[in-house]
Every structure is written in C-alpha cells, then in structure tokens.
Design a protein around this nucleic acid. Structure first.
Length: 845
RNA sequence: GCGGGCGUGAUGGAAUGGUAGACAUAUCAGACUUAAAAUCUGAAGGCCUAAUGGCCGUGUGGGUUCGAGUCCCACCGCCCGCACCA
C-alpha cells in the first residue's frame, strides 16, 4: 500500500496541467466566458497566508467554472510601485527596481507550487514600462477630456527631512524618521475630477446586486450626498458676507456663532493684522492631515472680532470664530454653530461661553439643552419654536425642507446638493511610481508630453542617500524640451498615486500586450470581471477609484459602455489570523516569537510564552506562518483545504497547527480510501448501494450550492461527512468506485492535485480539471421518510417519522396522536396547530 | 469623532423565521500494540436525575411572532476604513 505523498503528486500534476495548457485563456465564442480575478498582490517579497486564502478562493471559482463549461480568464500580476521599495533602498541600499523585480521572482516561485489555475502568459507588473507607458497614454486622454486638472492641496511636510510624508509615516504628529513636528504645506498638485461623477457613482450602486450590501453602503456614505443650503451672513460693519453651508438650516433659531476654516480666505486676510490669529492658524497647520486626527483633536477656536447679522432674526448678532474643526474642502469652509442641536457645537459653546438656544423641543418636553445636545432622528417629530416659516410640530426632515423653501422664496439662501466625495489627488513626490507625462515649459507653461514620446521612463541612475525625490535632483532627466515649442522645459517630477495603477489593471489583463491601453475587441469579449475577490479594506478607495476609471476609460474610448461598472460580483474575504506568542525582556518589554519557535508553550530555552489572542498575521508581532513551510511539510492541497475550511470566507480564519495537521490527515484518509477501493475486487455484491448513492447525490447538491454561494466552509463540512459515510459503507465496489470518483470531482476545486491522482488511479478519462461537473439526480435527493419535530407552545416535546409527501391534515392528525401532545392537552382542544410541511409542527394550547 | 461590520460549547464554526451546536479541533474512554506514535470505534453545551426525563442556554436588556441565533429598538465589547499604506 502506498502513502499519500503530496510533494510527488503535486509536482506531477502541475506539470501535466502546464503541458496540456488548460489554463491558457483564449477568445472563443463556443463557450460562455468567465473572468475571475483576485486583487493582485504588492510584491513585498514573500507570499503570506492571506494571499493563499485569497487566491485559493479565486481558484475554486475558476476551476469550478472550467468544469461547468466556461471559457475562464484567471490572470495574475503585480501591484509593483509604492513606498516599501524606496524605503528598502533607503534602509539597505540597492535600487527599488531591482528590489521589486527580485521580489516578484521570489513570490512567483512561492506561488506556483499552490497549483493555481492561472494563465501566467498574461502576467505583468505595474512597474513595467509597457504597463505604465499605457497608463501615461490614458492620463493624456483623460487630460484632453478635462478629467484631470491642477490645484493647490495640503500635504504632510517633514521640515527636517525636507520631504512629503504619507499619513502612515506620521506618528503622533511627528515624522517617522526625523521625529520632527509635521507641518501642513500647500503644493500645486494633479487631481482627477471624480467629484463630477458623484451622482452617477452613487446611483449606479443600486445596480450592483452581487456586491456585499455593506460595501455599497460604505460607498454611499463615502460619497455622502446631502441636500442643504448656502446662506450668506451679512457682516455688521461691512465687507463681503460670510457664506455658510448647512444641512440643518431648520436649527437656525439656535445659531449662536459662525465658524470658519483656518484655510478660509477670510482667516488668511484677518491673520495679516492679528498676530494672535496668525499664531492660531500656524498652530492648526501642525495637525496631520488625516480626517480621524482632525475629528479627534480638541476643538479649538479664536474669535475674529467680526460679527454678522442673523438672516431671519436681525436683532441677533453672531460672532465669527476661526475653528480648527472646520474643513475647507467641504461646503463653503464656513458653518454656523447651533450648540443646542449639535454636540460638537455645544462643547465648543460651553468652552468659550457662547449662547445655547433651542430651535425646537421634543413634543411635551420643553427643557432647554444643558450638557447634552438634542439630536433626534430626522424622521422624529419635534416642536419648532417660533419658526419663521410658521411650522410647529413636524419631523426634522419636514422642518429642513420647509426652511430651505422659505429661504429660497425670500432670497435668503440657495438650496444646494453637495457631496462629501473630494477630487482624487494623484500627485506623489516620490521616485518609485508612474511619471506624470507632462512638462513645464518655461515658455508655454504646462504641456502634455507627446504620445510618441511615451513611455516617459523612470531614470535608473538615482540614489536615495539624500532625502527628497531623486527625480527632482536628476538634471538630465528633469531638464527636457517642450514637445510644443521645442524650447527648454522641466519635466513634471511628481509621480502617480499607486491607486492609479490598480484602477485599470483588470482591463489590461484582457489584452496585456496591446499597443494601446486596451484592445477594444478583447475588452468587449472579456469584460466585465464576473467575480472579483479581495479584502474588505479596499471597500471604498480602490473600488471607487476603479469604478471612476472604468467610466473615464469609456469616455476616452478604451472600454465599452457595458464595462463602466467593471466588477459584476464582488466578494470581500476575511483575514488569516494567528495567536501571538510573547516573552518579556529585562525591561519588561514584549519580545515576540514565531509559532515555529514555540513548542508546548515554551521557546527553546524553556521560557514559557504568554499567549495573546489571535490577530491578523503581521511581521512585527511574528504571528506569521510561512506558506512555503506549510507546503513543504504537508503540500499545497492541505494548505488550500485548511484555509477554506472552518471559517466562512468573509470572516477571519485562525491558523492553527492542529487544524493544518487535521487537514493533512483527512486528505491522507481520502487517499487511503481510494487506494483500498482500487485494490478490492470490483464484483463484490454490496449492501446499501442505494444509501451510499443517495448520500452522494446530496453531497453533489450541497457542495455545488456551497461553491456557488461562497459557502466553502460548508461545502468542506459536507465533504467530510460524505467521506465518513463512504469509509463506513458496505456498498458494492462499483458503487464505491462511483462515490470516490465523485468525491474527487467535488474536492477538485479545493484539492486539485489529490483529485487528479484519485481520478487517474480509478481510471478516469483525461484530466479531472477538464471533466464535466457532476449533476445531482433529483430522484435520489428524496428521502423515504422524514423526522418532524413536534412543538407544544414553541418547545420541542416529541418527534414523528412520516413520509415526505404526507398531507398537512394527516401530519396534524399524527402529531396530535402522540403521547406528549395527548398528555399536554389532557382532553382539551388545541387553540391552534401550525404545520410547516417538511419542517415542524407546533401545537398551541 | 464619523462610517461599516462582528459577538453561538473549551476552540474554529453550522443553522431559507421552524429540532441550536452540523463539520472540525482540543479532551476523555475503548480497540490494536510489549509500549508509544499512527490508525480505528465511541462519548461529550451547562445544571438536576440511578434512569426515563426536566430546567437553563446563541454578548446584555427590551420588543414583534404560534415559534427568534436569525427581524426591530437600546446598550456593552471587539474588529475594519477615514481620502499620501497597499
């Protein structure tokens, strides 16, 4: 008897698939196409279990679709630009390009043994000039269509390193390397006009039926449509009115101050003659640029001394403050504060001694607001106090609408629909990204690079020994000639946000070697992505940007109209987690240990480790398991089987050594089962063939349903159960052979190598990867009899065994005749009997 | 702070509003073995009971329903995103 040797069979079948070329995707019209895509990886150097889980899920779908007669496109590439390559160059020397391509080679080598059904002939990296050159062409087309423009925007500036910092490089308001206080600095930068598409991106969410509802909701909130009003507040002693935007104009009666952003033109103007104000504005510049930091920071303000008149209660004068919590990017950069109905405004008012005035009460409760703002739901009824539009007890929503109508009718303001969504700033002051293909001509100004000069290649001869962007100090690259007038010009030294690279790669996969960004015939055939799979962390930015890009590519003639929503179905998978093992050093600081260095809860020197509950695998906590080690110990099929079992795909899965071991044992059991069935006589008449085949058809039904609905864990549980039935079965060899071959087929999307081997062993024809998916026989799914639980007042008290097709009246009669029901009734009549056919009987007494 | 999600045995989890705990891990018992490992068989939510059986039980509190893990409301805890991380 042979033993299950994963290493041997996996290499063998991977070679067989390669030789047969069955995963090569070609455009043919005799089969329906199916495009399955997993979010491509950043080439950090090693694959991790999260990748294994993501690609295994995609592979299950791809292989299942192949077996169900589809022409499958399942590509893979590399999201290869980004900061880590530059950080590595700074930390350990070398060149970002060498580092990146080496990592890609390493990761491809680690990925191949997984046996994924990927068409490697379509592979590319976003840092290939062939890719980013096409991206530059796209950029120029978008520029021509007016989808790109320049404006000033704020960045995190490290005054010591003299460089722009990403948000993640700002720790507690300080630069991660220099430790210097980070400042906000304005630079002229390139923007995509995604805000022009706010309404469309919002409305189209409705059609994305196969996206998780939570992702659609998150995008809806991100776009943040609101109906409000712009109200000019006239200054009491002259000057331009202060234009405020509000979504709650119904609270106007409670307005007690105006707050403007530190970046508001009026703030800047006043700062000129007001040292205290100038200092305050300078202080707010030392806040980092993240929204979370802004929101969490203490709300501070300074009185400008200016006052404005309330538009409907002219005796009320409101002070104008500069507030660090007012965003210049949203609305008009100025708001009126209504402390009674907004907690933030209330805190601000209490801090600075400003008035608090209710605009409404709750019906029957005329208490003035003290410490808790009164913020009822918009659908709740409130009683407005002395409202100028004459309304009294209505919902807040009706109050808002009535107020806007009144303001518009009396020329006091203009109703406005606004979106929270801001334009997408794509400029990055970094080397390792796609160069923005424009030049700054000393004569003509900003001039797009000529298309025949693309790609604008990154120069290779750069160093990272001095801070800042190497492109900025590279004279031969930076200095160029103007494509328009031929006179001297300076190349744009900013590169593109890496989100640009990942916003259209799915389209490029349809024709990865095309001389234009896409080949319309191929894009028309392969688009859309039928199933997209990736992490929930991309729910907003990457997916929203891709939706915008698909529209932009349609407008510039690079995608057909049907592809403006590029992802038909989206699945967001959970993370792979692991326990954290730590000991303490002499100073009591934690020291982390790799799982492979811990046995029996101890490290090599015998010290006991503290176990911290499972968290996302991360290098810093050392709670990582290297897939390469797992594959060499147990094989790819075990790794694939385990990451799919136990947890539902959308939830986190905890990697445990015992779980991996169990997966391996199970696959060995299946292998041994196949071996046994192979060696016994095929003619032994058996017992219970019908029972075994009935279970087999149920397994076909359940596993098919599981694979189609991303219930991989449930499908695997069913496969365990069916294997248990088969291993105990006394059925004839013919029936057992049929059962094991079907089992191999049902397992083949998850454990393709083992399944091929069983298939070959049992004399199956060709490759199992090409074999048509089994179909469940309806007639075999019906049981001879079913067990119905009998409830009395909703509690289970008995059960009856009845034929599945017994009619309701007969079921009721049988149920009422049981001892438990008779005893409970004690001669009385039941109040009600509920019979749910095939499910349950409930007797209400 | 804002937006989104999750919460079920010792553990991971299963359950179209219809028998809560499928399947697996860990545990315990038995078989095989000189022994161990491996393998195979079986037990098992908690409490009470000799047993039959009963009571309790899906983060907490309330509600809808003949019936709630599932739907609604409030609260608690944990996780993710917040626009220059990918």
């Amino acid at each position: 008897m042979s033993r299950y040797s994963a290493a041997e069979i996996e290499a063998k079948w991977q070679e067989a698939w390669d030789k047969a070329g069955i995963f090569r995707a070609t455009h043919t019209d005799d089969k329906p196409k199916y495009y399955v895509l997993e979010m491509f990886p950043y080439p950090s150097g090693r694959i991790h279990m999260g990748h294994v889980r993501n690609y295994t899920m995609g592979d299950v779908i791809a292989r299942y679709k192949l077996a169900t007669g589809h022409n499958v496109l399942h590509p893979m590439g590399w999201d290869a630009f980004g900061m880590p390559a530059e950080n590595a160059a700074m930390a350990i020397g070398g060149h970002p390009k060498d580092w990146t391509y080496q990592n890609i080679d390493d990761m491809r080598a680690q990925m191949k043994p997984l046996g994924l059904s990927i068409d490697w002939s379509r592979e590319f990296a976003t840092c290939d000039p062939e890719y980013y050159g096409q991206q530059q062409a796209l950029f120029l087309d978008m520029l021509e269509k007016g989808l790109v423009y320049r404006k000033n925007a704020v960045v995190n500036w490290d005054p010591v390193d003299m460089t722009v910092l990403a948000n993640e490089q700002v720790i507690d308001g300080k630069g991660w390397r220099s430790g210097a206080e980070v400042e906000r600095r304005e630079l002229t930068q390139w923007f995509f006009k995604i805000s022009d598409f706010s309404e469309e991106l919002l409305e189209a969410l409705d059609g994305l039926d196969n996206w998780p509802a939570k992702v659609r909701l998150m995008q809806e909130n991100w776009i943040g449509k609101s109906r409000g009003i712009e109200i000019p507040f006239h200054r009491t002693n002259g000057g331009d009115p202060v234009l405020c935007y509000s979504t709650r104009p119904d609270t106007m009666r409670g307005a007690s101050f105006i707050a403007i952003s530190p970046e508001h033109p009026l703030s800047r103007e006043l700062a000129g003659g007001n040292a205290e104000l100038a200092a305050f504005i300078a202080e707010t510049r030392k806040m980092d640029t993240t929204e979370a930091a802004m929101e969490k920071a203490e709300k501070k303000g300074i009185d400008t001394g200016i006052t404005v008149r309330h538009p409907v209660y002219p005796d009320i004068e409101l002070p104008v403050w500069v507030g660090n919590f007012v965003l210049m990017d949203y609305g008009t950069g100025a708001v009126f504060g209504c402390p009674a109905h907004d907690q933030r405004d209330l805190d601000f008012a209490r801090k600075y001694g400003l008035d608090v005035r209710n605009a409404f009460y709750m019906p029957g409760d005329e208490t003035e607001v003290e410490n808790d703002a009164l913020v009822p739901a918009k659908s709740e009824k409130v009683v407005y106090i002395d409202h100028f539009a004459g309304i009294s007890e209505v919902t807040s929503q009706e109050g808002i609408d009535a107020t806007i109508d009144y303001f518009e009718a009396n020329d006091l303001g203009v109703g406005q629909v606004k979106y929270r969504l801001r334009d997408w700033g794509l400029s990055r002051q970094r080397y390792w990204g796609c160069p923005i293909p424009v030049v700054h001509c000393y004569t003509c100004g900003v001039v797009p690079e000529a298309k025949e000069n693309l790609p604008v290649r990154l120069p290779d001869d750069v160093t990272f020994d001095v801070p800042g962007n190497p492109l900025d100090r590279h004279p031969t690259w930076r200095d160029c000639t103007c494509p328009k007038c031929g006179k001297p010009a300076k190349r744009e030294t900013d590169t593109m946000d890496t989100f640009v690279d990942s916003s259209w790669y799915f389209a490029r996969f349809t024709a990865p070697r095309a001389e234009t960004p896409t080949d319309m015939a191929e894009a028309d055939y392969w688009m859309n992505v039928d199933q997209y799979i990736g992490g929930i962390e991309h729910a907003i930015l990457h997916l929203l940007y891709s939706r915008f890009f698909a529209r932009a590519m349609h407008l510039t003639g690079h995608l057909p109209a049907k592809a403006i929503e590029p992802f038909d179905a989206l699945f967001t998978q959970g993370m792979v987690t692991h326990e954290i093992y730590q000991t303490r050093d002499g100073n009591g600081r934690p020291v982390y240990h790799l799982p492979e260095d811990v046995s029996d809860g101890k490290i090599a020197d015998g010290t006991k480790v503290e176990i911290i509950s499972s968290a996302k695998m991360s290098k810093s906590k050392k709670n990582v398991v290297d897939p390469v080690n797992i594959i060499s110990a147990y094989g790819a099929d075990t790794a694939r089987w385990f990451v799919l079992s136990d947890s539902p795909p959308e939830r986190d899965v905890e990697w445990t050594a015992s779980g991996a071991e169990a997966a391996y044992k199970h696959l060995s059991r299946v292998w041994n089962l196949c071996d046994r069935i192979g060696v016994m006589d095929a003619d032994i008449p058996g017992d219970g063939d019908d029972d075994l085949l009935r279970e087999m058809h149920k397994a076909i039904r359940d596993v098919t349903l599981g694979v189609e609905s991303f219930g991989f864990n449930a499908a695997i549980a069913k496969l365990y159960a069916f294997t248990n039935v088969l291993s105990k079965s006394q059925a004839s060899m013919a029936a057992q052979k049929q059962a094991i071959m079907t089992l191999a087929q049902l397992m083949s999307p998850m454990t393709p190598h083992l399944s091929e081997d069983i298939w070959a062993h049992q004399g199956g024809e060709g490759l199992i990867a090409n074999a048509p998916w089994p179909k469940a026989d309806e007639a075999m799914l019906v049981d001879q009899s079913i067990t119905l639980p009998i409830q009395i007042n909703g509690k289970r008290r008995a059960e009856i065994s009845v034929p599945p097709d017994m009619d309701k009246a007969q079921v009721e009669k049988t149920a009422l005749a049981t001892d438990a029901v008779q005893k409970a009734l004690d001669g009385a009549q039941p109040k009600k009997v509920i019979v749910v056919p095939g499910r349950i009987v409930n007797v209400v007494i």
